[in-house]
Design a protein around this nucleic acid. Structure first.
Lengths: 303, 303
DNA sequence: CTCCACCATAAGCATTACTTAGGCTTGCCC
DNA sequence: GGGCAAGCCTAAGTAATGCTTATGGTGGAG
């Protein structure tokens, strides 16, 4: 089997005209070159060089091999360069999956920073809610998934993240959203969740809805849910119209401006944990690692 | 440094989808593949594979490397094939240099046999007299030189063949050429060279002329040379016209038909040694070696 | 829940590759 | 003409590399 090393040596000999010159060019000793050439000629089954007293000439087979060597080594160099570019963050692609309220808040800053510091890299984004977005990750369709979970809720077995790298980003406090002018809106003091037992409710995504119900039941009531939508502007709009109250994560409210609502702290204080997920192997990929760092930094800014 | 072996392994893994499958395809064990990939990833500086529980996926860097690998390995295979063709006599070129009387006698049969047995090979021919033709060989401008020397003449130092491979082909007897009807022509018995002391002489090439003079002086006379030409038909023509006698090698007479001359054996019997010369390294080249064998065989047919 | 297929690691072994040291040839220069 | 320098080869020792067997851990399928 001919190896790239052999071709490098042969080419150096052909260029330099002597084993010694080749050895100098390759940064090794002359016997090393001599032995490599011997091995290569053995592999070739025919002499590749004619040792003249004054110079070293190629045989026909040697010429053929040198002719191919240039192309082969050029291809190898190109391959190495491409990989080195990815390893050195001069290139590389990161495919991000994010849940809706993370997309306008955490992602833009992180991506901008990434693009600024490593202009060769590319970041693509797809929106998906946690259970599905984690599947994207496992299926190899994305590299980083932004997801969240409620730490006070038991995790179903099929949603375990044990096999993933979990990078915590921030604890996203849940707050109450009530119509402006609501009785509990004014104080600035935390509002007991139980105090909202009699209200009508606007719930969020299925997960959030489940969590809301659980949370309420812990303090002794079952919320009466009139609407459920994962469209946050819709939620605040409904609340502003006086159709009910809601519990939303702070992150969701950051990018949703609604004039007709008031935001109140809740008691007991609960939060959802926002994390970045990736596969263990992908965490070693420089662009992915760097993107995780940028996301962490972006989250820090809003902790 | 990325080696071809690494790419072979990586490609096998990409094709097979698992280390085990790759190992089977490559004819080695699974840990061997595992270790090679580890080394390759270390060289690359970034993961190349994502170990999923069910299948093995490539990272972006891995894809890049596999993409290049096909071209690189194809080039390598082409190079190996070309060299193997030369080594296996399915291709290859032999550049022959021959002296004039060897060209029409030894060369055609040998070349024909070569072409028949190894159709892919090519033989080219250039005509040159011994001192110059050996220089061609040393300068790398031919691969085999047909040459001759007079074993009873001391060899000048600058014409030594000590650094060459000398393959004896045949001993080419020298014979006398006299006009038909000459007094010494009839008998069929060997003619003493001394008996030709009084004749006028037609000499051959400079070397042959020198040898003739030396030979004659050894038996006690200096030949009176009227003409000297390396054109054998001219020599026999001059002899046939009764302008003198000549001494020619048998080989030269084989391809020169002249009706007006008689050929007589000489005493003392002398000959020139016809040899094939090549460089030690070139003798290892299959096509050259085979051509030498064919030349030897062709010479045997006329020994 | 047990078996099977797969991967990782460790340890041992064989091969390979490189080094230093020394000897030979050749061409060159005093 | 006799060193001298440059270049190649071989030998021997050493370091690195690659492959093997053996073993343990893990996820998926019957």
């Amino acid at each position: 089997m001919i190896e790239a090393r052999h071709l490098r040596v042969l080419r150096a000999v052909a260029r330099g005209g002597s084993f010694s010159a080749a050895a100098r060019a390759l940064g090794c000793t002359q016997p090393a070159v001599s032995q490599q050439m011997k091995a290569l000629e053995a592999a070739a089954g025919t002499p590749l060089l004619v040792r003249g007293p004054r110079e070293m000439r190629l045989t026909q087979a040697g010429e053929a091999l040198v002719r191919h060597a240039d192309g082969i080594l050029a291809g190898l160099a190109a391959a190495e360069e491409e990989v080195a570019a990815i390893a050195g963050l001069r290139a590389g692609r990161v495919r991000l999956a994010s849940f809706p309220s993370g997309t306008p808040t955490l992602v833009p800053g992180a991506v901008a920073e990434m693009r600024e510091r490593h202009p060769g890299t590319e970041v693509s984004l797809v929106e998906a809610e946690p259970p599905a977005s984690v599947d994207l990750l496992r299926a190899g369709d994305c590299d980083i998934t932004l997801a969240f979970r409620y730490p006070d809720l038991p995790t179903p077995a099929e949603e375990s993240w044990d096999d993933l790298v979990v990078r915590p980003l921030l604890a996203d406090r849940l707050v109450g959203v009530v119509p402006r002018g609501h009785a509990l809106a004014g104080g600035g003091a935390p509002v007991d969740l139980a105090a909202l037992a009699g209200e009508r409710w606007i719930a969020g995504c299925p997960r959030c809805r489940g969590h809301l119900v659980e949370m309420c039941e812990r303090v002794g009531f079952t919320p009466r849910i009139d609407f459920a939508t994962d469209d946050y502007p819709a939620v605040t709009g409904l609340v502003a119209a006086g159709l009910g109250v809601a519990v939303l994560p702070r992150l969701a409210l950051e990018s949703v401006r609604s004039r007709g609502v008031a935001v109140v702290e809740l008691r007991p204080a609960v939060h959802r944990e926002v994390v970045a997920l990736t596969l263990p192997d992908l965490a070693q990929v420089p662009a992915v690692d760097m993107m995780l760092a940028r996301l962490t930094r972006a989250a820090l800014g809003r902790a």
